[in-house]
Nucleic acid binder design. Sequence first.
DNA 1: AACTAGTTTAACCATATGGTTAAATCAATT
DNA 2: AATTGATTTAACCATATGGTTAAACTAGTT
Lengths: 204, 204
Amino acid sequence: MKAKKDINTEEKIVEAAEKVFIKNGMAGARMQQIADEAGINKALLHYYYRSKEKLFSIVFRTALKALLPNIIKSFKSEGSFFEKLRVFVDTYLTIIEKNPHLPGFVIHELNHRPEQLIQTIAELDIDIQFIIDDINTEIENGNIINISPNDLIINVISLCIFPVVARPMVTGVLFKGDKDEYKTFLKERKSHVADFVINSIKTK
Amino acid sequence: MKAKKDINTEEKIVEAAEKVFIKNGMAGARMQQIADEAGINKALLHYYYRSKEKLFSIVFRTALKALLPNIIKSFKSEGSFFEKLRVFVDTYLTIIEKNPHLPGFVIHELNHRPEQLIQTIAELDIDIQFIIDDINTEIENGNIINISPNDLIINVISLCIFPVVARPMVTGVLFKGDKDEYKTFLKERKSHVADFVINSIKTK
DNA sequence: AACTAGTTTAACCATATGGTTAAATCAATT
DNA sequence: AATTGATTTAACCATATGGTTAAACTAGTT
């Protein structure tokens, strides 16, 4: 019944699509480019995945999953609140460094057609309540200052994501194009972000 | 010699181009869309601005100017370091709120073809040395803790830009799509960011 | 009124692009 | 080996898109 299919073609296509979409965005991506990247022909693309839109949906959902829920889980590690915060920052920055274009892709597409894509976020049903509860407990216990949990969460994410998403701007303005300087900057960033945040919120 | 030209057509075109490019990005923008937006016809677009690429360059440069140098100047205000920091955050967030898609546009295009566009940044010749000097002086005077100026600058910018650039993600995950909640969040953000940063760096 | 130079338009062109179709391959089953 | 059904391909199509051209229009100038 089944034919050859040395290495799963479906998967090859999705991987190629991820590469092309995340690099060029929906509007900039070309089906031919995806086909080339997958080492197949354009028609085969449409055989497996009817339309560009369908392929995009799959890639977008995968990207969103890689960016949000899995990492939020890393906040469920053992230890004190500050230790959990350090693990979270470390995990998040590691994943983003490995896929530096991923956050930018998600943000750009989300900004471009929020109505259609916001649904995808909702479907992931991301639960951050346990983090909010954690923060409130720390406040009640007098371990950290009185801060809005939403602000604190956004602050941590901002400090992690932005320097990676805006890499060319950062290297261009701050490092005058010096790539090595940027690399060391990012490397030291993991501990820096955690230090910076903890320093701001810990009660003296 | 000159003909009618009620309201400067050139300007109308650039304004339309800004709108369309910043909303859709280079790849997603259509010359027809720009022509429609400007209330003229496609050929007239090419009469004034030879190619899409040329128009894009103008828009990109304008966007970059709006995002970087003018605002950095706001750090040259009077007062103590902390006061200057507050003015900076306030100014920056105000401008970004007024043009919420601007940072995302610049970041996306910069990521897409860094080689070609990084040049544009270099041409602006942005000087942040005076900020770095300011920070170092504060450290020497014992007013703020020993922090890398680059990290501090990036932190402030991150905390300002990210929540606006990633608005759909923020509203989607944190506020479950509640727009009003996001608005109040942003309004309180100006003082919060400054407080958060100052709290982290000030010596006790 | 005729001329001139800047301005605006409709019609057109070549190419790129997403998508379709029908035929060819291929491997397991009979 | 013939059948079958999944897989793969070349060729094609309709439309969209960036860009061009030549003609028409406009308002000052002579």
